[in-house]
Design a binder for these strands. Structure first.
Lengths: 143, 143
DNA sequence: CGTCAAGACTGGAATGATTCCAGAGAACGA
DNA sequence: TCGTTCTCTGGAATCATTCCAGTCTTGACG
């Protein structure tokens, strides 16, 4: 069930523009997350191996970090769950997490732009981001 | 530097009212978190041992879970950091986390009551809580 | 005030996600 | 094409947390 690696000019360009080297693992990671938003590192590893064959876990973690640092990916980490990655970046949208199955869905920013909220008392902190996580049950688990 | 265990009628009552047995570890955990809000399990273990002598890590985790389940404690877990516990419960306040040192401070609910925000599109989820985490730099680390 | 069953605690091993490390391999500017 | 720099490999290590089986406590009841 190995897919043929497809040349993705758009994604190659994305990497180059970010000043990153173009490698098979990075392209495969981008593609995997394009197909399944909010995947865990583990899921990405499986998808990348499905496409490229043998790839070390570390290579995938390295790519996830490089891409996240370059703002090509966003990392989110719901309490009690492994980190998840997504390609929707630059808009500080938020997330709903299912308490039962851990499913994650996107939610547009509730109020204005990022940081879309300001703390009532910032205790002297310099705030640069407001992260909102909604918790509940997804349609499936509610049944 | 072992402190003498002090009888804390208020905290004994708290446990009893919650239907929990009163044990030394639980009282010590409550006291530790009364003195240092937003402590990690590890910090609580040290504080409890400082008060009671030998106590297993597991006993502290068990207590933290029991107290959290009974709503005597609240657990929060900033991405990339171990979980932290606090005694301020029942008001769904929020938190500011320092990106540099991990320090946490409380922030009152920005808008109305808990859940203080409603998602613009809930994707069919039943939302029961909105958790807001502000990220930035604390006064100390900004310097 | 003693009994005893449910619940809590001990200590050691296991788990899961992630990171560290040293060496081999690949990307790309010159 | 070459060499430098960055990336990938594979295996071990780390950290927070949980699992497990056996022992000890708490507190309801007699």
């Amino acid at each position: 069930m190995t897919r043929t690696p497809i040349d993705e000019p758009a994604e190659r360009q994305l990497l180059r523009d970010a000043g990153l080297r173009v490698t098979g693992v990075r392209l495969a990671v981008l593609r995997a997350l394009g197909e399944h938003q909010h995947s865990t590192a583990d899921t990405v590893v499986r998808a990348v191996r499905d496409e490229l064959g043998t790839v070390s876990v570390q290579a995938v973690y390295d790519s996830l970090h490089a891409l996240t640092d370059a703002d090509l990916l966003r990392r989110m980490e719901p309490a009690g769950h492994p980190a998840r990655y997504e390609r929707r970046v630059g808009d500080n949208h938020h997330h709903i997490v299912c308490r039962a199955c851990g499913a994650v869905a996107d939610v547009d920013c509730t109020v204005g732009h990022a940081p879309c909220l300001l703390p009532s008392d910032d205790h002297g902190f310099t705030v640069d981001l407001a992260e909102v996580t909604f918790w509940g049950l997804c349609p499936r688990c509610r049944g």
